[in-house]
Design a protein around this nucleic acid. Structure first.
Lengths: 115, 115
DNA sequence: GGGACGTATCGACGTTCGTCAATATCTTTC
DNA sequence: GAAAGATATTGACGAACGTCGATACGTCCC
């Protein structure tokens, strides 16, 4: 929360391959930040629900019931996913629509493949 | 530690794609377990050091200095990586050699690609 | 403007995490 | 078998996490 919203650029910076040489501190930290966001079962599930929704987007109201968590907790998880640069938030009318940032999962996958 | 060493099979079980339908609890948990292991900068760095070493293996003695952590802490991180099924441990003489489980990172990457 | 509704923030709680110093365990060598 | 070296375990600590109920904030509609 101390950081301004420069989160979109993560998709660009995040991608030094794990297996292609020793990572420096900044690279390791950028990668760990995204992986940590994926390090909770409910967040992984939330991502998959969004991906499976039509239009690849969903609002909190769609997400609360499938994961069985309270609305504030889902809101909290979504905030973490947004801050990690994995998910984008768009306010449309009363609802907040969340979608997976295009390409970010592929980029992350790219850091894991042996090359 | 309540679980016996069935960790090798993780590479087989871990791989329900995030973006190909809503994950059930077991799948989400299996994925999150591996991602959580990658959710610490020092562990990511440890992985990259192992990958960059000749023979793709390293002992704790090789790892302590690059990450700047105490020996027990490195040992602890390695244990987590092993338990997550990402790293294999092999005792050879006095030393314990750690190597990345073949294919596991590619499998993980496979769960992220949009397909 | 006053409700009603969807979402975010706050405050609190128990739990897990990352780290270290101290110590124990295992392996080799003399 | 005793000493030395490499690694693991233990115990402790503060920090971060996941969760909730209560409440505040926006947005729409009458």
């Amino acid at each position: 929360m101390t950081a301004p919203p420069v989160l979109q650029s993560h998709a660009v910076v995040c991608c030094s391959p794990v297996t292609a040489g020793v990572l420096d501190d900044a690279q390791a930290e950028a990668l760990a930040r995204m992986f940590k966001a994926l390090g909770d079962p409910n967040r992984v599930k939330l991502l998959s629900i969004i991906a499976a929704s039509e239009g690849q987007e969903a609002c909190v109201c769609d997400l609360t019931e499938p994961v069985g968590l309270s609305q504030p907790t889902v809101s909290h998880h979504m905030k973490l996913l947004v801050e990690a640069g994995l998910v984008a938030r768009e306010q449309r009318g009363r609802w907040a629509y969340f979608s997976i940032v295009p390409g970010v999962l592929d980029s992350l996958a790219g850091t894991l493949v042996s090359r």
